[in-house]
């Protein structure tokens, strides 16, 4: 029986889930959409963020969202370092597309295995006062473990949009792959621009990871489920349009929430991949992309 109550709750749950997905997809939207770097390891960096939040939360009781924000600079440095390696090994020699892809595939595998060796395959979680509480508005139930990540993710997305549209470096990042001429006119060094952009992309994984472990317990290989999901979001969102990514994330969140509510949660993971395959097959430039 589909009641209005169940239906609206599924919508709200989907909106919150989608908001969180935006946080995970944001970094990929920058790397894949703007830089043409296929960082298939992005979800693994998110899991790394989850484990950082887990360690500090369990040992010092610090709020996971705060940890996620504080560790952004560290992740930023990981990102810029990663770009140096990527540039020297692949971009400079024109090998970036396929070798670069295999490089990130290997990197993903390494991070995952190191996490398994360190933490094992048990599910880990964090503690915070609001986790487990639920906000009730009428018949709508909004668990804080979903609401807090959704709000934090929306703020982060907003901040990145502001940065990309208002600052010089942000505009340079948006131009770096599409518009070489504009970049030259701006007098920006594309290598530096890309380095900073990859830094920012990986930095978002710090917070996204902290948000993930608020929503659900995490083990090292959870990241793989997000690969299809976030590529679906980024491609659907029109490759690198950050607001498009946000809308696509919400859309996927809602669809998954419906599938989970009405067909059972074990089918939900296929939603992202299914939509990704359909999008790629029918309209590779995404639904919000340029024709």
């Amino acid at each position: 029986m589909i009641t209005l109550e169940l239906f609206l709750n599924a919508v709200v749950a989907g909106l919150m889930l989608g908001g969180f997905y935006a946080a995970v997809a944001l970094g990929l939207s920058i790397t894949f959409g703007q830089l043409d770097i296929v960082n298939i390891a992005h979800p693994t960096f998110v899991i790394l963020g989850s484990f950082v939040a887990y360690i500090l939360n369990q040992n010092f009781g610090i709020d996971p969202v705060l940890i996620g924000v504080v560790f952004m600079p560290v992740f930023y440095l990981i990102g810029t370092t990663l770009y140096r390696v990527y540039y020297v090994s692949f971009e400079r020699t024109g090998q970036e597309s396929l070798s670069g892809l295999a490089f990130f595939f290997g990197l993903m595998f390494i991070i995952e295995v190191v996490l398994i060796l360190t933490f094992g395959v048990d599910y880990r979680l964090v503690n915070a006062a609001y986790i487990g509480k639920t906000l009730h508005i009428g018949f709508l139930d909004m668990p804080f473990r979903m609401l807090v990540p959704a709000i934090a993710a929306t703020i982060m997305t907003g901040a990145v949009v502001l940065y990309m549209t208002k600052t010089f470096m942000g505009k340079a990042i948006m131009a770096v792959s599409q518009d070489r001429l504009a970049l030259q006119l701006m007098g920006a060094d594309p290598i530096k621009v890309k380095r900073i952009a990859l830094g920012i992309a990986i930095a978002t994984a710090s917070l996204a990871g902290a948000l993930l472990i608020i929503i659900q317990p995490v083990e090292p290989s959870v990241g793989r489920l997000y690969i299809g999901r976030i590529f679906a979001i980024v491609v659907l969102g029109g490759m690198g349009s950050i607001s498009g990514t946000f809308v696509a994330a919400i859309l996927i969140g809602v669809v998954e929430s419906f599938i989970a509510t009405f067909y059972g949660p074990s089918w939900a993971p296929a939603v992202g991949f299914g939509i990704l395959l359909l999008t790629l097959a029918i309209r590779p430039q995404g639904i919000f992309g340029r024709a």
Binding site: V38, L225, I227, G228, A232, F273, L276, L277, L280, P284
Partner: peptide, 12 residues
Amino acid sequence: YFAIATLATALV
């Protein structure tokens, strides 16, 4: 895109 599609297919 082909590479990602193969990965997605395996997970579906």
